[in-house]
């Protein structure tokens, strides 16, 4: 009796769960779901920015906005420049993070001052990206520190400053991304490696594996889920790149790199709030960004999935099927 009463009491309390999670879902619905639906809706119209057209007298235009965006040279440029700048930064980011994580967790090297190095390497990540962008802009512009350095080593003669080129611009954005993020990736990977069961390493050392072999055959496969997580979050962030390249943006006197560092989000902002104020076009570009991110994340998940586990699962399924068939035959 007592236990059923208690159970009933618990059951009655369980509806409180909905009350506790209600504020989250209500807020998410209003501020995220509604704008997401609006994005898809506006993408099919010729909507203008609200303060250009407060009556909201827009028309349904089908996929015209998508057609326009896909043929727009500025969008095409942003479409390849954004992932390129991301990948140019991400390769050294992951490379350095892996190398440092391997060193810092290696018992034979025993790096001293690890706490200090972690704090220093992570520091750029916490800074305002806009500040970092403006700082590097101050360095690279004419009469900035890099220009002066080039003059000092007599690379630059007179007024010519040849390193201000599109590829230098993309390179500097990629470098800033690398510089801001490798520390973060390193800390995450170290945490992952420290979470590996030490008996694996002991077994490897008993079998006489070298440090590199241990890293390749034990560490790397076991931190693959964490690397995948870093890769996907970095990719999602990379496609949304805005703060840093916007500091080198078009339109100001310091349009140092012109449209060479333009990204998808910069394009979206520009189309919606300058020129023709076409929210419809901006939303069409947003939908494309959404689709690209989703497809790339799925591809990464698929490509980086645990192949052995997938194989094992497949084999198990096959065996189960065979068994079922055999049993069916027996009956």
């Amino acid at each position: 009796m007592a236990s059923t009463a208690k159970k009933r009491g618990k059951l009655e309390k369980n509806h409180w769960g909905y009350i506790f999670i209600a504020p989250f879902f209500l807020t998410y619905l209003i501020f995220q779901v509604v704008p997401l639906i609006d994005t898809f809706r506006y993408a099919l119209t010729d909507a203008k920015a609200w303060y250009m057209d407060p009556e909201q007298a827009y028309n349904f235009v089908g996929i015209d906005q998508f057609k326009f965006v896909v043929q727009d040279q500025f969008f095409k440029d942003a479409l390849w420049q954004t992932p390129l700048m991301w990948i140019m930064g991400f390769i050294p980011q992951l490379g350095f993070a892996l190398l440092l994580a391997a060193w810092f967790t290696n018992e034979k090297i025993r790096v001293k001052g690890q706490g200090f190095f972690k704090v220093v390497f992570y520091m750029p990540n916490i800074m305002t990206a806009a500040t970092i962008g403006a700082l590097f802009l101050a360095f690279i512009r004419p009469n900035g520190f890099i220009h002066n350095f080039c003059v000092a080593i007599e690379y630059v003669k007179n007024e010519k400053y040849p390193i201000i080129s599109p590829w230098f611009g993309r390179g500097i954005v990629a470098f800033i991304n690398f510089w801001m993020w490798y520390g973060q990736t390193m800390i995450v990977l170290i945490a992952g490696i420290l979470g590996i069961n030490p008996s694996f390493f002991e077994a490897a050392s008993i079998d006489g594996a070298s440090g590199f072999q241990t890293f390749r055959k034990i560490t790397l496969p076991l931190i693959r889920p964490i690397m995948l997580y870093s890769l996907v979050t970095s990719l999602i962030g990379g496609f949304q790149m805005f703060d840093v390249p916007n500091m080198f943006a078009v339109g100001d006197t310091h349009a140092v790199f012109g449209p060479a560092v333009s990204t998808i989000v910069m394009y979206i902002k520009r189309v919606a709030y300058s020129g023709t104020f076409s929210v419809g076009r901006a939303c069409a570009a947003s939908v494309i960004l959404f689709a690209i991110t989703a497809v790339c994340s799925l591809i990464l998940f698929w490509a980086m999935r645990d192949r052995d586990a997938a194989k094992a699962a497949k084999a198990a399924k096959k065996r189960a099927k065979e068994l079922a068939a055999m049993e069916g035959g027996n009956i």
Binding site: A49, F239, Q240, F242, V265, V279, A282, S286, V287, L289
Partner: peptide, 22 residues
């Protein structure tokens, strides 16, 4: 909730601004 962590936030930025302006 686990799924929506993956949604890129900047996708909805324009519609969000439009809604706030309205």
């Amino acid at each position: 909730i686990m799924l929506i962590q993956m949604v890129p936030t900047q996708v909805t930025v324009i519609s969000f601004v439009e809604m706030m302006n309205k």
